[in-house]
Amino acid sequence: MRHFLAAALLAASPALGGVTEALDAHILPGYAGFAEASAALAEAAGADCTAPALAAPYHAAFDAWMRVGDIRMGPSEHGALAIVFWPDARGFTQKTLQRLIAAQDPVIDDPAAFADVSIAGRGLFALDMLLFDTAFSGYAPQSYACRLAQRLTADLAAQAAALDAEWADSFAAVLRSAGAPDNATYLSEQEAVRALYTQILSSLEFTRDSRLGNPLGTFERPRPARAEARRSGRSLRNAVAATDAAVEFAEALADWELPATRAALDLVHEAADKIGDPAFADIDDLGERFKVEVLQQKIQGVETAIEEEIGLVLGLQPGFNSQDGD
């Protein structure tokens, strides 16, 4: 009965209503919030670039990013790469930071030149290592590393402002005008809705398979060192935040209630609250591993609920592969 009601609601309202709501209630405020938080982080670094002084504004910026950080469409398809270079199984971020500091590379004094530095040495994960890894974080106020922190935060703020502007001034209009004769990106309103729906499922899959799957590794060989943002203790925080964001996104895209999705999200929070180490460092303990696996299953439950409460209405059967780009 729920699915028939949802289908009736969708038929009674323009498909672009969901696109407009997703943009206005979730996507555009998300990028604006990230730009604001990144600017605040850069301003804080200008006043005091030491690691302890930047911890709180760094977390605020990362929290803001998590609201839209898994969106990979339009300007974010490539624009996100230098903001979040992860996974980094080969340690390119560490190598890039070590090289810059050892050479006292003057590239940090030139904003345009720094924009050409390897993406492994830029963005939130370069800051995560510089500010929270004890091999880097003890730098002095007047040191090269302190100036590097200032450049990294200024570069992040510039990237955030650019993404915010590209979405607000350009790509949002492409989504809103889906089906218009001059729109070569989305040939119908339904294509735009389906593209946004795909982003929601892709985010949940990434959280389940990478944010949790990477540190879980295998039963014989867990890999806690591969947890996302483990140095700053954000691994669990990011997994939950990304799931919260996916549900917020889904609720904005739908114009009907999603009670099963909300109930599934509650179970995610219950499972997360039982995990003791926010960086998954103890994942080699069987009991702790089980808790992370339970969280993984609960996130799968959110995905299943969204498939049933939104996907079926869109004509997409459960099991739809969000990586297909449909």
Rank of each mutant, 00 (worst) to 15 (best):
D128N: 15
L97G: 05
D133R: 14
F171M: 09
P106E: 09
W86Y: 14
Q150M: 12
L156G: 03
P111C: 07
E166L: 15
D169F: 07
A135K: 14
A140T: 15
Q94N: 09
A126H: 02
T93C: 08
T96L: 09
S118I: 01
R99P: 03
P106Y: 10
T153V: 01
A113Q: 10
T93V: 08
Q142T: 12
D155W: 08
F114Y: 11
A112C: 00
D63F: 03
F62E: 07
V107C: 00
L156M: 11
L148G: 08
I101G: 09
G121D: 06
G91H: 06
D128L: 05
T93H: 04
Q98H: 12
P87H: 06
R147E: 12
D63A: 15
T93R: 06
T134W: 00
K95H: 11
G74D: 02
F125K: 11
A103G: 02
Y139H: 09
A172R: 04
D105I: 12
D116L: 13
D128T: 11
M66A: 13
L152V: 01
D105Y: 11
T153W: 01
S118M: 06
Q94H: 13
A126N: 10
A64V: 08
R72N: 01
D128R: 07
D70C: 10
A162V: 02
D70A: 14
V68H: 02
A160T: 07
C146N: 06
R72P: 04
I108D: 09
D105C: 00
A158P: 05
P87K: 09
P106K: 10
R99D: 13
A64W: 08
Y139T: 05
Q159D: 15
D109Q: 13
L130Q: 06
L127E: 08
L130V: 00
A145C: 06
F136M: 09
V84C: 11
A80R: 13
P141Y: 05
L81V: 13
T153R: 04
W86Q: 10
T93M: 08
L81A: 15
V174D: 07
Y144R: 08
L130W: 06
S76I: 07
A161D: 15
E166R: 15
I83W: 06
W65H: 01
A113H: 04
L130I: 07
D63T: 14
L131Q: 03
R151A: 15
L81C: 04
Y139R: 00
L131D: 04
Q104G: 15
G138Q: 11
M129L: 15
R176Y: 06
A82V: 04
A115D: 13
D116F: 11
A135P: 01
A145K: 05
A112L: 12
R151T: 15
A102I: 02
A160L: 11
L130P: 03
A102H: 10
A120D: 10
M66H: 11
I71N: 01
M129E: 13
I101M: 11
S143Y: 01
I119A: 09
I101F: 02
